[in-house]
Design a protein around this nucleic acid. Structure first.
Length: 200
DNA sequence: CGCCGGATTCCG
DNA sequence: GGAATCCGGCGA
């Protein structure tokens, strides 16, 4: 498929996922986000990537989740917005992570976007990151796209930050593994809530 | 109010 | 394996 970038952007935006998508079971959303397109109408120009890796965070009962046990602090508040909003937070003092909030306003769950394959704006992504490997980790992805606090609590269904239906079918299989970097989460450590899209 | 440590990444 | 580097979260 060889559309000019402007047409591809228009096509993607016309296929923006509806609210209902984000209200499903968070594990279903994490799984179904694989192959979908993360689109950002950024100040540097349009950027997009095909989502290849996600993790589900299952809310108040999940010891790895920021909203565990009903925590509702300033940082975590976007998780209490209706499904389909962004939750961007700082990690290790220097990186940002992008989440997709799921479920309803009384059920603070989310999906962490851990990896995308560049689709639009790859040159800009390479400028934003000083390394060859692009966006195969949550911090790298935000750096490549130029995402930070400013994009926190945005609505993926109608803002400059969107998630859209895939254009053209890429075949892949899904691998489930435990989540990364949550050693403290006790009985939640080993649950297979990380979803990897493996290209066929 | 002070301290601890993290849903990470890079370099050696 | 360790550093970089900020601020949320929690105990005092």
């Amino acid at each position: 498929m060889n559309l000019p970038t402007s047409k591809l952007c228009k096509l993607l935006k016309s296929k923006t996922l509806p609210r209902d998508f984000y209200l499903q079971d968070t594990r279903v959303v994490a799984r179904e986000l694989l192959g979908k397109v993360l689109y950002f109408d950024s100040p540097q120009g349009p950027m997009a990537g095909v989502i290849s890796e996600t993790e589900a965070y299952l809310g108040v009962k999940d010891k790895a989740c920021h909203s565990y046990n009903g925590r509702k602090t300033e940082r975590v508040k976007p998780m209490y917005l209706v499904g389909g909003h962004s939750y961007v937070y700082r990690i290790y003092g220097m990186y940002w992570c992008l989440n997709v909030v799921t479920r309803g306003t009384d059920d603070p769950q989310a999906v962490l976007i851990r990896g995308v394959k560049p689709l639009i704006g790859e040159e800009t992504m390479r400028q934003n990151r000083n390394h060859f490997r692009l966006s195969d980790g949550p911090g790298k992805l935000c750096q490549a796209f130029g995402l930070s606090r400013e994009q926190n609590a945005w609505d993926f269904t109608k803002s400059k930050l969107r998630i859209c239906e895939a254009v053209g079918a890429h075949k892949f299989k899904v691998l489930k593994t435990p989540r990364i970097g949550i050693d403290y989460a006790e009985e939640w450590v080993d649950k297979k809530l990380r979803y990897l899209g493996i290209a066929l």
